[in-house]
């Protein structure tokens, strides 16, 4: 009788009932296991099981879409941690950031969050550039390009709302410069062309306290109201919307025939 090979510790673990209850397919060694490993995992099944060879070439994809999503996850996690320390009020916001950098040992969450956000903006632009240069917006993927443009816009708006939160000079003046443009919105801003037409008799409907800038800032200038609004938009509102569009974006990549490639 042939002697049984002793099992390695790793194989033993992977064959234990606990492991098998979590990862049903075991360690993916055989072709079937590798396919089932993708199919049975909720995260990995964003992917198809098999791909044409060009689709895994870095020279083709630059991995920029994947990195944009990864950066989004990094920003979500570091952002949640930052929320433990940060209170969005004029009284506390700045000192909380000071505390964060001075009291938290080895704290680099703010750095990760800030530099990661810049990196995400660049990654999203480069992803868009790649998709254009490979003509991947062409039918049948035209709608997914539209969703992608919205995602890029949401990325910029997420970054913009986060810009205010440290409540330092850079923050409020950058947001002041940015949001001042909103008061010139045609019809909807109090210094925009056509706004004076929206009036009942001689009562203007679009004033400094009712225009689109007021709605964005929750006030006539960048103050308490703006800080709270930007905080809520940054931490809840925009991530909620962007996640919906991301789900559509990923779903449509698969449904529109997978990653683009030469016919």
């Amino acid at each position: 009788m042939a002697e049984k090979k002793p099992k390695s510790r790793l194989t033993a673990i992977s064959e234990s009932p606990v492991w098998k209850s979590i990862f049903r397919t075991g360690i993916p060694v055989t072709r079937r296991q590798r396919m089932m490993g993708i199919l049975n995992n909720v995260f990995l099944h964003l992917h198809p099981v098999r791909l044409p060879k060009h689709a895994v070439k870095l020279k083709y994809t630059w991995c920029m879409g994947g990195l944009s999503f990864f950066l989004f996850l990094v920003l979500t996690i570091s952002g949640i941690l930052l929320m433990f320390y940060y209170r969005p009020t004029v009284e506390y916001a700045y000192t909380d950031i000071m505390d964060l950098s001075e009291q938290v040992p080895l704290g680099i969450m703010r750095e990760l969050h800030r530099w990661g956000a810049h990196a995400m903006v660049i990654a999203v632009w480069l992803h868009m550039f790649r998709v254009f240069m490979t003509g991947s917006y062409k039918p049948p993927r035209e709608f997914n390009w539209v969703v992608g443009v919205l995602l890029m816009f949401l990325t910029l708006f997420l970054s913009f709302t986060g810009y205010l939160l440290p409540w330092d000079q850079l923050a409020i003046w950058a947001i002041t410069v940015g949001s001042n443009m909103a008061r010139a919105t045609p019809f909807l801003g109090h210094e925009g062309p056509g706004a004076s037409l929206l009036a009942i008799g001689d009562i203007n409907l679009v004033t400094m306290s009712s225009d689109v800038r007021f709605a964005l800032l929750g006030g006539r200038f960048v103050g308490e109201g703006a800080l709270l609004r930007f905080y809520v938009l940054h931490c809840i509102g925009l991530p909620f919307i962007i996640m919906i569009f991301m789900a559509v974006h990923f779903w449509r990549v698969r449904k529109d025939g997978g990653i683009s490639g030469p016919v």
């Binding site: 993916p28 590798r34 396919m35 990995l44 992917h47 099981v49 060009h54 895994v56 490639g261 030469p262």
Partner: peptide, 14 residues
């Protein structure tokens, strides 16, 4: 970028 259609790779591990 062209490979014959039957020339595919598995997502795990490639």
């Amino acid at each position: 970028e062209y490979y014959p259609p039957e020339d595919k790779v598995l997502v795990w591990p490639d």
